[in-house]
Design a binder for these strands. Structure first.
Lengths: 219, 219
DNA sequence: CACCGCCCTGTTGTATACAACAACTGGTAT
DNA sequence: ATACCAGTTGTTGTATACAACAGGGCGGTG
């Protein structure tokens, strides 16, 4: 596999997992030294990340990890909610028995993390939970787009989970979603997933507050 | 503006407008000669187009204009329908008076083209019609994604319009959509737009047939 | 003291050269 | 006749060097 691809995946992971914070500068030369290669593959990796919206290039000033404004974030969550709902609607009809079982397993794992108060664990299992629903839609393109958006929003989604009782609420919502998916109730699955993802009410305010704190640490 | 960006736009346009057909080879060296530059910016342009799904690279064998399989196409239309529906739902509530007027104007232009049987004209005005609804959603990210998918499907969408009575049917569907949008009826706008975009029944078969003809001319 | 302009520096974008790699083609052996 | 092997060729991926461009700082001037 070409080096640029590996670098793209590595950098994407590092961004998504929070090793680089939104607004951080990504210096091509430093990265080139770090990964023992020339600027060319680094440049290509950054270009691709820029295309997928993970980084923003400020011409002649540097490349930075994308820092989304509140508006941009709300817009993306709005689209994400719709795509997740669509995945749910399709998955309710199309999901295989294996995926169904895996989903219930992921939900059980989420429950364990919730009980232990293990936020990072929940965060990971939650990703699995949603990924399974994407795959369950049996629409590879939809699943790919959903994964892309999910990755893009991951750094911000993580902030939400620290809000009080968010884990419990999230898990209960999952429970209703699983129920609808198992029952094959497409409409309910779609609606519950949309609501689950959509930023609304308190959660919106919590997230904005977290972002502002995040912003202060890097300005 | 960097040359690579210009080239990307140029190539994308050329593909979308059908100057290159799905399956055509895009030889970097030939393009470099054609555009009087080195392979570097060409390469970058092609990489970006590959990321957005317009071209497919077959490692060590060449770069080709994406030729979507029937499955891939159906999947994309399925997602497109959902996104358009979402645009419609939001636009019904958020569209400005100017956009509303522009939409009615585009619809009138479509009507003229329909009456004249001007397929290319209709094709163009149809693009405007849909673009206005995207913008009307007042969700810049959603609009961008919708435009991207729309562009990707454009070469195939064009095939549909040649089917008998497709222009008339399309225009009538537009009419119902405009009506719902003007009335601010979000549910109807969403539903009508979804149906309008979704490949179903006869139209699906027509498109598959056209694609097979297209395939034969390039194999 | 403030403002304007110039130079320097840093960053990106492009060209070119080179190396690695896989696919194709020709030939040979079984 | 077919399968396999090796050389060749074409293509991509990477490194490096260079040029262009913009921004920031510094100094001069009003």
């Amino acid at each position: 596999m070409p080096q640029a691809q590996r670098l793209r995946d590595l950098l994407e992971d590092a961004i998504v997992e929070g090793h680089y914070a939104p607004g951080d500068r990504l210096d091509p030369e430093a990265l080139a030294r770090q990964y023992q290669c020339s600027r060319t593959p680094i440049r290509e990796a950054l270009t691709q990340l820029s295309a997928s919206g993970m980084v923003k290039v400020a011409p002649k000033r540097g490349t930075f990890v994308a820092r989304l404004s509140v508006t941009e974030l709300v817009e993306r969550f709005e689209v994400m909610a719709e795509l997740e709902g669509m995945c749910g609607r399709l998955a309710a009809r199309r999901m295989s028995n294996e995926t169904r079982a895996a989903l219930q397993q992921a939900q059980a794992a989420c429950r364990q993390c919730m009980i232990r108060g293990d936020i990072n664990g929940y965060y990971y299992e939650n990703g699995e939970f949603h990924r399974l629903i994407y795959e369950g839609s049996h629409n590879a393109f939809l699943a790919q787009e959903a994964r892309r958006l999910h990755a893009m929003l991951k750094p911000y989604r993580r902030l939400q989970l620290h809000a009080r009782h968010r884990l419990e609420n999230s898990w209960c919502e999952h429970e209703r979603i699983v129920e609808a998916l198992i029952a094959g109730d497409a409409d309910t699955a779609q609606r519950e997933l949309r609501e689950h993802v959509l930023l609304q009410g308190e959660r919106f305010n919590d997230l904005v507050a977290s972002m502002q704190r995040l912003g202060q640490t890097h300005d």
